[in-house]
Simulated scan of single mutants.
Amino acid sequence: MAFSLHPRLEADTTWLGDLPLCRVLLSKEDIGPWLILVPKVEGITEIHHLSEEDQIQFIKESSALASKLEHFSHPDKINIGALGNMVSQLHIHHIARFQTDVAWPGPIWGNTKGVIREVSLQEETAANWQQHLATIEGFVSA
Rank of each mutant, 00 (worst) to 15 (best):
S67Y: 06
W104I: 07
H94K: 06
A2R: 13
H48Q: 14
Q131C: 09
T45I: 07
E123T: 05
L35N: 01
V102L: 09
S51K: 01
A126R: 10
F58I: 02
K113D: 13
K60E: 10
S4W: 00
P105I: 01
I47Y: 05
L65R: 04
H94Y: 05
E46N: 13
C22L: 05
E123L: 09
S63G: 11
T13Q: 04
F58N: 05
I108T: 07
N128M: 13
S27F: 02
S73Q: 12
S67A: 14
Q55S: 09
H6C: 07
V102T: 10
P20F: 12
E70K: 15
G43H: 08
I108S: 02
L50A: 07
Q130M: 15
H91F: 06
S73R: 06
L133Q: 01
S73D: 08
L19W: 10
L133A: 03
V102R: 09
F72M: 06
Q55M: 14
D18N: 12
A82L: 08
I78F: 09
F3A: 01
G138V: 06
W15K: 08
H71K: 15
I59Y: 13
L9W: 07
S62M: 13
H48D: 15
Q57K: 14
H6M: 10
S4R: 10
S120W: 02
I31H: 06
A82V: 09
V24F: 05
K28C: 02
M86Y: 12
A11R: 12
W34C: 00
E118W: 07
H71G: 13
H71M: 14
P105V: 02
S73F: 00
H132Y: 14
A64E: 11
L37H: 08
L19M: 12
H6P: 15
I78E: 03
K28H: 07
S62H: 07
P20D: 12
E42M: 11
E46D: 15
T13W: 02
G110F: 08
W34H: 04
S88M: 10
L37P: 11
A126H: 10
L26C: 03
E123N: 09
L21S: 08
E123W: 00
K113G: 05
T112W: 08
E42A: 15
F58W: 08
I31C: 11
L35Q: 02
I116H: 03
V115G: 04
P105T: 01
S4L: 03
N128W: 12
N111T: 03
I47P: 03
G81Q: 10
W129R: 01
R23C: 03
E52A: 11
N79Q: 06
E53W: 02
R23Y: 01
S62V: 00
S62L: 15
P107E: 12
H6Q: 10
H132T: 00
G17V: 06
Q57S: 14
E61T: 04
E137G: 01
T112M: 02
W104E: 04
C22W: 03
F98N: 06
G110W: 11
A11G: 11
I44E: 07
H74Q: 15
A82G: 15
Q131V: 13
V87T: 12
